[in-house]
Nucleic acid binder design. Structure first.
Lengths: 129, 129
DNA sequence: GCTTGATCTAGAGTGCGCTCTAGCTCGCCG
DNA sequence: CGGCGAGCTAGAGCGCACTCTAGATCAAGC
């Protein structure tokens, strides 16, 4: 098993750019310090890939970097703060749900507009907005 | 009927700030030129409020300003381009649906994590990430 | 008349999350 | 040995959508 991955390989696997990977490291979003090889090149592990994939998920659902940083800090601290991590995840879960219901509401409004225009196009009628 | 509204009143009704209202006007997001009173103050109509409310909905669902600008331009042009407006709305509808399914997928992943931590907290066990 | 509060303009500043640049080093292939 | 491609750092730049500032003007109330 090749436990060691280059930044390029990690980029490919996680879908994050190498720029973003270095950026995330600077921003202290990682759960463990990235080791280096003889030439100071970063060496990643499968765990890093797993964590970074989760980060990508968090980002895709709108979690701000400071929150990810906080979560990462908890993980770095080690066992004992599971309740804190849970609270953080639940809070994010709540926000996703909120966001989805907002989206659903707007979606409905837009669907209505679409139907209006469909009927206008079908019947050759016109109207406002 | 007070057909005329000040920028402050419109801000209150639409939830957009007065800054944002002026900004949207500069950005050509409006469907009609805003008239002015004797003192060069903006005078809005109910139609403006309706349109701006729709803009707020568009923004809340992630429609970029250039797309809103394009839609506004179509409305300004008047009748005859209903098909174009419809295409634009449908495209946005599609993107909202896409976004919602992405969110749902991530939500599921996070719910799983939450369950993992719940059981850890409940049983006093520990683990990674 | 004077003050207060809303509005006006042009333009600068902000926050977020990247994204890119310049100039360097390193390991490898032929 | 030469050259390429990947990686390195520090730091600048960018895109988006606001958001705010300064300094002026105006309408209304005391």
């Amino acid at each position: 098993m090749s436990e060691t991955l280059s930044i390029g390989q990690v980029a490919e696997r996680t879908g994050l750019s190498v720029h973003t990977l270095r950026f995330y490291e600077r921003e202290e979003l990682l759960t463990a310090p990235v080791t280096r090889d003889t030439g100071r090149r970063r060496v990643y592990t499968e765990d890093d890939v797993e964590w970074l994939t989760m980060c990508a998920n968090f980002r895709a659902t709108g979690m701000p970097l400071p929150v990810i940083r906080a979560y990462a800090a908890l993980v770095r601290q080690g066992p004992g703060n599971e309740q804190d991590r849970l609270n953080l995840l639940r809070e994010h879960e709540r926000r996703i749900a909120e966001r989805m219901s907002d989206l659903a509401a707007c979606q409905e409004l837009i669907s209505y507009k679409v139907r209006v225009y469909e009927s206008r196009v079908a019947h050759g009628t016109t109207g406002g907005l």
